[in-house]
């Protein structure tokens, strides 16, 4: 059988869409926190670039290392 034929674009999209949505949610939370943070470790614009272009890892890196004065 041929897997290739059994997949069309819309089906593919419906499978991948949740992945994209979750990534977007992470990114949005990270961006909002970054914008609201009084102090970030390193310049803010750098973190925004990391979050925007670093995929999931950019956001995670910001969550863990980006903020100061959490406690």
């Amino acid at each position: 059988m041929n897997i290739n034929n059994s997949i069309d674009l819309s089906q593919m999209l419906s499978i991948v869409l949740p992945l994209i949505i979750i990534q977007l949610i992470l990114m949005v939370i990270a961006l909002v926190l970054c914008a609201k943070a009084e102090q970030t470790r390193g310049p803010k614009w750098m973190w925004i670039l990391i979050i925007l272009f670093g995929n999931m890892f950019g956001s995670i890196a910001f969550f863990i290392f980006g903020r100061r004065n959490e406690g």
Binding site: I3, N4, M12, I15, V16, P18, L19, I22, Q23, I25, L26, I29, A30, L33, M56, S59, I60, F63
Partner: peptide, 25 residues
């Protein structure tokens, strides 16, 4: 927001594996 983003990361990791196996061919 740890209670939000950590589960989201795990969900992402969890979904990625079956999806990439599916699309691998």
């Amino acid at each position: 927001f740890k209670l939000l983003w950590v589960p989201l990361v795990f969900i992402l990791l969890g979904i990625m594996q079956p999806v990439s196996s599916y699309f691998m061919p």
